[in-house]
Design a protein around this nucleic acid. Structure first.
Lengths: 337, 337
DNA sequence: TTGTAAGCGTTATCAC
DNA sequence: GTGATAACGCTTACAA
C-alpha cells in the first residue's frame, strides 16, 4: 500500500512536503502541490489513519456502547433509531462510529475504560445501561468524554440526553383523567431503569394533580417486555376488574397488556383504555392503534452526538439536552363509561 | 496515558520484555511476568491498539457499509437484524465494527476503497447496495476482503450471503395456487435490486409450474416502499377487479397493498389474498396478520460475518452462503371463491 | 518554500 | 530470559 514516502520519492521531495501538500497547508509551492496530488492519485494513495491518529492523539471515531443490540431489540426500534440519529450527525461531522461489543463473553472481561482506551475513541455514547451496571461508575470516574442516553450523569466530561419522563407520564394521566377514568393502573419497567423511576413519579404526580386515588398494588413491573407485561396485566385485571385504564411505561408492554385484555374478554378501548410510551413503529400499525407518549428517538441520538462533540471540543458548557415528548391520541383510549 | 515504556521503567526491564510478558509469550521468567502484570494493573495500562495495528498490519475491526441506516429503515427491521447478527459473531471473535457513513455529503466524495483503506479495516460487509452503485465494481476490483448481503459477487476476496429468492417466491405462488387462486399479480421492488429480479423469476416460474397465466401488466414496481406499493396496487386493483391475489416482494409493500385494498372496499383475505416477503416484525402484529416468506435476517448477518472471517483467514474456499427461507401462513391468504 | 530529524506506542529481529 | 534497535506511516518543531 502506498505511503507518503513513496510519493516523496516519486515527486523528488521530502515526506514533510508531501504531508503538508496533502493536508492543504499554505506554505507549499503550487506546482509541487499539484505534482504531489497528481502522483497521489496515480498510485492510489490513501492516508493511514492509524499512523496519523498515533501522532495526532485523536482518531475521529466515537465509540458506541449499546445494550439492546440483540435479537429482540428489533421489536421496539428505539435502539435502531437512536443509532441512526447518532450516525447521521457523526457522519456529517466526519466522525466514524465503532460499535463495542459488550454482550459477548470475549470482551466481557474488559472494563469500559479499557475498551475505549484501547481503540482510542475520542468519545463515547452509551445507551441502554442500567442503574446498577458497574460500567456506570467507571464512566463517571474515567476522563473519557461521554454522553448517555436516558441516564442522568453530569460531569466535566460527561453529559446526557433524555426526555422529560415525569411530564410525559403526566400527559398520559391527564389524558386518561379527561376521559373520565379514575381507576388507573400502571405497568412499569424495572427498578434498574432511570426512566422507570421518572415515569412512576409522573404517574403519581399526575394522579394527585387530578385528585385521583393511587393504589400502590396497581403499580407493577413488566420488565419492559411484552410477555412479562401480559402476565402482570392479566393478574392485575383479573383481580381488580374495576380498573378501567392502564398506563404502560413502554409500547411493547402496552402490546402485552392488549393481549391480556383480549384473553380476559375485555374490549379495547371500550372496557379498558391503554396508553403506552415511546411511539415505536408497531404502535401505529397495531389494531387498535396505540395511544402513546411519543419520543423522538432519532433526535435523541442526533442530539447526543451533537452534545458529545461539543464536550469534546469544549465549545459549550452544556451537559444536558432534553427532547420534547408528545401525546399521540390514537385508538386505545376512550371515555370511561 | 500509560505505555509499555512506563511499565518497563518501573519494572526495570526493557520494553521488549514487557511486550512479551503482556502478550503471553512463554520465554519470559514467571517472576518478571508477574511483576510486570502487577505494575500494568497498578498504573492502569491499556495497550494502544493503533500502535499495535500499525506494526501488525491488521486492526481486528471490520467495516460496515450500510445503505438503509436511515430514519425510515426502522420500519422494516431488516437492517437492524442483520447488524445484530454481524455484531454477535464479530463480538464473539473479538472483532469490533466500524460503521462507515456513506449517506452524508462529507464522506460521499471518498471512494469505497479509500474509506476502508484509511481505517485499515480487515474486511467489509456491505448491505443494501444497488446493482448500479459505482461502489460495486470498486468492491470487485479492490482487494479488500468483503462479503455482500443479497448481491451475488464472487471473487478471490469477496463473497455473499443470500437466500434462495427464486424458490422463496415459488413457495408463495404454490401456496396461492393451492388455495385456488389463478389471477395473481405481483408488486415487485425496483430494477436496481438483485432480489427483485430473482423474486420476479420465482414468480414467473411458479406461475408456469402451476399452469397459470402470467399477465405482464400485472407485475408492477412498488420501489420497496409502503406508499408507492399502495398507489401501484390501488390502480392495479381498480383496473383489474379480477385479481384475487397479490404477491409482494416485501412485507412493507404488502402493508401498502392492504391499505389500497381497504380503500377499495376489498376485504382481506376474503376478496384479496396477500403474501409478503421478509417477515418483518410488523408482519405478525398487523391485522390481519401477514402471510409471508420469512427470511432469517439475523442469521444472514451472522453468517456474513462468519464468511468474511473465513475469507480473511483463508480457512475456507467457500464464497457463498445461502440461508433457508420459509413460508409462514397467517391470515392474509385464504381459499379463492 | 523545503528538508532533517524526532517522536507517537507498539512488535519483531537478532544478538547476548 | 532478556535487551538494543529497527520498523510501521505519519505529523511537526526547527533549521536552512
Amino acid at each position: 500500500m502506498a505511503t507518503i514516502k513513496d510519493i516523496a520519492k516519486l515527486a523528488g521531495v521530502s515526506v514533510t512536503t508531501v504531508s503538508r501538500a496533502l493536508n492543504g497547508y499554505s506554505d507549499v509551492n503550487a506546482d509541487t502541490r499539484k505534482r504531489i496530488e497528481q502522483i497521489a492519485k496515480e498510485i492510489e494513495y490513501s492516508p493511514n489513519a492509524l499512523a496519523r491518529s498515533l501522532v495526532m492523539k485523536h482518531t475521529k471515531t466515537i465509540g458506541l456502547l449499546v445494550s439492546g443490540l440483540s435479537r429482540d431489540g428489533a421489536k421496539d426500534n428505539i435502539v435502531f433509531d437512536v443509532l441512526t440519529g447518532i450516525n447521521e450527525y457523526c457522519g456529517s461531522m466526519g466522525y466514524d462510529l465503532v460499535l463495542f461489543n459488550t454482550t459477548t463473553s470475549k470482551q466481557k472481561e474488559k472494563t469500559y475504560a479499557q475498551l475505549c482506551r484501547e481503540r482510542r475513541v475520542d468519545g463515547v455514547i452509551v445507551q441502554g445501561i442500567k442503574k446498577d451496571d458497574p460500567y456506570l461508575i467507571e464512566i463517571f470516574d474515567s476522563n473519557i468524554p461521554c454522553v448517555l442516553i436516558d441516564v442522568p450523569v453530569e460531569n466535566e466530561h460527561t453529559g446526557y440526553v433524555s426526555t422529560d419522563n415525569v411530564d410525559g407520564s403526566m400527559k398520559a394521566i391527564r389524558h386518561l383523567a379527561e376521559l373520565g377514568h379514575s381507576n388507573i393502573a400502571m405497568i412499569n419497567g424495572h427498578d434498574q431503569a432511570y426512566v422507570s423511576k421518572e415515569r412512576r413519579k409522573g404517574f403519581e404526580l399526575g394522579m394527585v394533580e387530578e385528585g385521583l386515588d393511587i393504589h400502590p398494588e396497581w403499580i407493577v413491573n413488566g420488565e419492559f417486555t411484552e410477555l412479562k407485561a401480559e402476565e402482570a396485566a392479566y393478574q392485575l385485571l383479573k383481580n381488580n376488574p374495576e380498573i378501567t385504564a392502564i398506563f404502560c411505561a413502554s409500547d411493547l408492554m402496552a402490546l402485552g397488556v392488549m393481549r391480556a385484555a383480549f384473553d380476559l374478554g375485555k374490549k379495547i378501548p371500550g372496557d379498558l383504555s391503554i396508553v403506552g410510551y415511546d411511539d415505536i413503529t408497531l404502535a401505529s400499525y397495531v389494531t387498535p392503534a396505540l395511544t402513546t407518549i411519543a419520543q423522538d428517538t432519532f433526535r435523541m441520538g442526533y442530539e447526543a452526538a451533537d452534545l458529545l462533540l461539543k464536550i469534546l471540543h469544549q465549545t459549550d458548557e452544556k451537559r444536558v439536552q432534553l427532547i420534547d415528548n408528545e401525546l399521540k391520541v390514537r385508538k386505545t383510549t376512550t371515555r370511561c363509561n
